[in-house]
Computed example of a mutant assay.
Amino acid sequence: MPDATDADGLTVGQISARLGVTVRALHHWDEIGLARPSLRTASGYRLYTAGDLERLHRIVVYRELGLGLDRIRAVLDDSTADVPAALRAQRSQIAERVAHLRQLSAGLDRMIEAHERGLLLTVEQQAAVFGPRWDPDWPAQARRRYGNTTQWLQYAEGSAARGPEEWQAVADAVSELDRALGDAMDAGVTPGSPEADRLVERHRDVFASYFPLTRQMQVCLGRRFEADPEFAAHYDGIRTGLATWFRRIVDASARAHGIDPDTATWE
């Protein structure tokens, strides 16, 4: 490598500032033979000529387009390389990445909206899925009441992935469970019986559509269904006394799993 004075070329620091690449990257490209400075000073410092700078410009451009260093070397050094074909291939890869990023962006928008609204259905869709008695303001009320809880986050993340068909499946599962609970109470199913315990497990499975429900949480929920006027009205509207009966079968199942319903907490 010829010796030169400082006036004959640009230093590594000057090239770094001009091209916006790190000194470390320039040293690496020198070490692997991708872009070596043509000159050195008597003191051994690298100096880049105008020709070196032109090559570095091309490396920076190709790197920003996403080409790997080996591919860049081939494009620059192989006289038989089909540069347009290489760039077209890279353009196709970039187009795929752009499409993927757009999908991610749309998913993030839905996730943000789900965290803020809870239910990503129009008022008309909500009425069609949940019935005419559904109040479209309920999700907003739930957000104000439970928005800082882990369960709301779990519910929102599930909601972001659901459209009308998925919510219809959830609503159908809830309705079928409600009918099964009413039929079981009419049939005289007793708390602690195998059939009652199966219904308790089925309730936990159905409720997992909203968020995972532990047995202790289920006990707390059963008590709320009985004590809260709105919940009690829903269950007692299916069968008189169903809210209390449901609480009793949940309590019995909890005892069978070593949980004292009187001390159960939301955890």
Rank of each mutant, 00 (worst) to 15 (best):
Q126G: 06
R55T: 12
E96N: 02
L104A: 13
L108I: 15
V123R: 04
L121H: 06
V123P: 04
R102L: 13
V98M: 14
E116M: 11
L34S: 05
I112G: 04
L56R: 04
D77P: 00
G44C: 00
A25Y: 02
D82I: 13
H57D: 14
S43W: 12
W29C: 00
R36C: 10
T49N: 00
R117A: 15
E54P: 08
T80L: 13
I94M: 08
A127P: 02
R91H: 01
A127M: 07
S38M: 15
A114Q: 13
R63T: 05
Y48P: 01
R110D: 09
A127E: 15
Y48F: 11
L26V: 08
L26D: 06
L34A: 03
Q126E: 15
P84K: 00
A81I: 05
Y45A: 00
L101A: 06
S43C: 04
L67V: 01
E124D: 14
R110N: 08
R110E: 13
A89P: 02
L65F: 03
T49M: 05
E54R: 15
V123Q: 07
A74V: 12
V83H: 01
Y62M: 03
R88C: 07
R73E: 11
E124L: 10
A74F: 10
P84W: 01
A86G: 03
D30W: 01
D77N: 12
I94S: 09
D77L: 08
A114P: 15
L104S: 12
G118W: 01
E64K: 06
L26S: 02
G51E: 12
R36N: 01
R46H: 05
R63K: 09
Y48T: 02
S43G: 14
G51Y: 13
V129F: 05
S79Q: 13
E31S: 12
A106N: 10
H100E: 14
E64D: 13
L39Y: 00
D109N: 14
L69G: 09
S105W: 11
T122H: 06
S79T: 13
A25K: 08
T80W: 09
E64S: 11
A86L: 06
P37C: 00
Q126T: 14
I72L: 04
G107C: 10
D70Y: 04
V23Q: 09
V23G: 04
L39T: 01
A74C: 09
R102G: 09
E54T: 09
T122M: 07
I112L: 10
L119R: 09
A95K: 06
T41W: 14
Y45L: 03
R91C: 01
G118M: 02
D82A: 09
I32V: 00
Q126K: 07
R73H: 03
D78E: 11
Q103L: 10
R117E: 14
E113D: 07
A85Y: 01
A50D: 15
L53I: 10
D70E: 15
